[in-house]
């Protein structure tokens, strides 16, 4: 395996969980809801994914468990913000706190146990092709899921009627309601989709990335996913580009160190965050671009009039 190919594979693995969680949050935000609880839903997905895989012996069931628990956990957020119209920022933070605490309690007996890893795809001949073989045909199955998810969401949002409805709910919930659209119902579905994606991303960490369970193993990746959505100005393919860029910077700084360049590691570690701020500024500076893509009702509560 060549060095470049190996580096690209590492970047793909680092980017995949960010991409999946961010795509889910993108759909949530497109419907006009801001869920800051991505980190909490991810960690719940991680502990469930690991636990189910360990207890049943099937990593696939583990991934499924992560998805289901992520979606259920997001319902808690949905109930509070959509039915009880609580503040979305605070509720999202509460979800993160609760997730970090609960997962630590649930996972206590999983600590120190090796997990079961989802095997990589292997297609005879194709996977062994030089250079492209491993990259295109030999990665873990969830990598392909993440790409398909991006394509699917891009298609759904911009080429289907349902996608148009979802976007209209996010852009102006009052007029969507006046048109007879069930605003709250659609937002519930979007929140659950976001939860399912975050759960899958978490399970990816504990079943594929590093098959083990430790407390706080998401280590802030949920927050990065949130930043990626804005970074991408709510466009699915740009989320993909952002996730890979972020992965590349993260991995690149480790390589810069291994080469012995002697740059302070703290500076290198802070680059991804600084880069996000700079890109956020560049994007929001372009008024036209922001206006077109930003869900205008983002974060605003909606109570149907009677």
């Amino acid at each position: 395996m060549g060095v470049i190919e190996a580096i690209l594979l590492t970047i793909a693995t680092a980017a995949t969980p960010l991409l999946i969680a961010a795509i889910g949050e993108l759909v949530v935000e497109r419907s006009g809801v801001l869920n800051l609880g991505v980190e909490g839903m991810m960690i719940m997905g991680a502990v469930t994914g690991f636990g189910v895989a360990l207890l049943t012996g099937s990593p696939w069931l583990g991934m499924l468990g992560g998805i289901v628990v992520g979606a259920l956990f997001s319902l808690l957020f949905g109930f509070l913000t959509l039915t009880l119209v609580t503040n979305q920022v605070a509720t999202g933070l509460a979800l993160t706190l609760l997730g970090l605490g609960l997962s630590g309690m649930l996972g206590e007996s999983f600590v120190g146990q090796p997990g079961i890893r989802l095997p990589n795809l292997h297609i005879p001949v194709l996977s062994d092709l030089p250079f492209v073989g491993g990259l295109i045909f030999g990665q873990d199955p969830i990598f392909y899921v993440s790409i398909a998810l991006t394509a699917g969401v891009a298609w759904f949002l911009f080429y289907t009627h349902a996608g148009l409805t979802l976007r209209s709910v996010g852009d102006n919930h009052a007029s969507a309601h006046a048109l007879g659209i069930n605003v709250i119902g659609i937002r519930y579905l979007a929140v659950m989709f976001g939860g399912a994606c975050a759960g899958l991303a978490g399970a990816y960490l504990s079943v594929v990335y590093t098959p083990q369970w430790v407390e706080n193993m998401t280590a802030g990746r949920g927050w990065i996913a949130l930043a990626l959505v804005v970074f991408a100005s709510w466009r699915p393919w740009r989320v993909l580009a952002g996730a890979y860029l972020f992965g590349a910077v993260t991995i690149g700084q480790l390589h810069a160190q291994a080469l012995g360049l002697g740059i302070p590691s703290q500076l290198l570690s802070s680059l991804p965050y600084l880069a996000t701020v700079v890109v956020l500024v560049l994007i929001s500076q372009n008024k036209r671009l922001t206006m077109v893509n930003t869900p205008a009702s983002l974060g605003r509560p909606f109570v149907p009039d009677r």
Partner: peptide
């Protein structure tokens, strides 16, 4: 774990 894994890969 994630960062340590990345470092090992690098």
């Amino acid at each position: 774990p994630g960062k340590e894994a990345d470092a090992a890969k690098a």
